[in-house]
């Protein structure tokens, strides 16, 4: 039997006495796509941050490939995150944003350069290599964030409302880009959003998070 990619058991988290997550359990299979729907402030982002290791739960367990992973540093979990406000490195060019991430993962210079160009070509940003993130449009910035995350070939990609603040045209284009890239990669995806249409577009399981409880 194949071990699930990730298993969350009875995750609890509070901030300043306010319960954000209450006993969340979730299993993510290899290459699976899951969308979590929920209103603003219901704990969606906190859940992603706990899975990625950027936040620690007050209580509960997390297993990656069947092994306890709560003490595993975030950068050793094989997980990448596309943040709601993207987290692009503003002082670096478009190319360097991807290249630096690959170099940080100990890729050789030549390989990092090749893979960065591949990733940027894949999202049609190869023409914008020398631009700074601030010079990109909203849609292009998002594609760069996808390219950087996917260039590292994570086993699990976490998407935190990736289409927020995009107009309809840019949103549709970004969704198409993402679908295209995901079809080619074997990455599992966990998307959090408050729009059912975005969840349906991704495909896979759709779950609801309400008052810190996942159903």
């Amino acid at each position: 039997m194949i071990e699930p990619l990730a298993q969350l058991g009875n995750i609890h988290k509070s901030f300043a006495g306010q319960k954000v997550l209450q006993g969340v359990c979730l299993t993510i299979q290899v290459e699976e796509r899951i969308s979590i729907l929920g209103s603003s402030g219901c704990g969606k982002t906190t859940l992603l941050r706990i899975i990625s290791g950027l936040e620690t739960p007050d209580e509960g367990q997390l297993f990656l490939h069947g092994k306890p992973a709560l003490r595993t540093p975030p950068w050793q979990r094989g997980i990448q995150f596309v943040f709601q406000d993207l987290g692009l490195w503003p002082t670096r060019t478009v190319f360097q944003n991807v290249y630096d991430a690959l170099r940080a993962q100990k890729r050789s210079k030549a390989m990092a350069k090749e893979q960065a160009m591949d990733a940027l070509t894949c999202v049609s940003l190869n023409e914008h290599c020398q631009k700074k993130p601030a010079q990109l449009s909203g849609g292009e910035s998002r594609r760069l964030a996808f390219a950087r995350a996917l260039a590292l070939r994570p086993e699990l990609l976490l998407l935190d409302e990736p289409y927020a603040s995009l107009d309809e045209t840019s949103k549709t284009q970004s969704q198409e880009w993402l679908q295209k890239i995901l079809e080619e990669s074997k990455t599992a995806v966990l998307l959090v959003t408050h729009t059912l249409a975005e969840a349906e577009q991704l495909g896979g399981r759709v779950m609801h998070l309400e008052d810190g409880v996942l159903s």
Binding site: L54, W75, Q80, W89, A101, A104, Q105, R148, L152
Partner: peptide, 22 residues
């Protein structure tokens, strides 16, 4: 987010380097 992206990509050393760059 940009700090955390650096942390996820390359750990504390990469995050520290990003601080210097900033």
């Amino acid at each position: 987010a940009s700090h955390e992206a650096a942390l996820l990509a390359g750990g504390p050393r990469r995050a520290l380097w990003e601080m210097f760059r900033t």
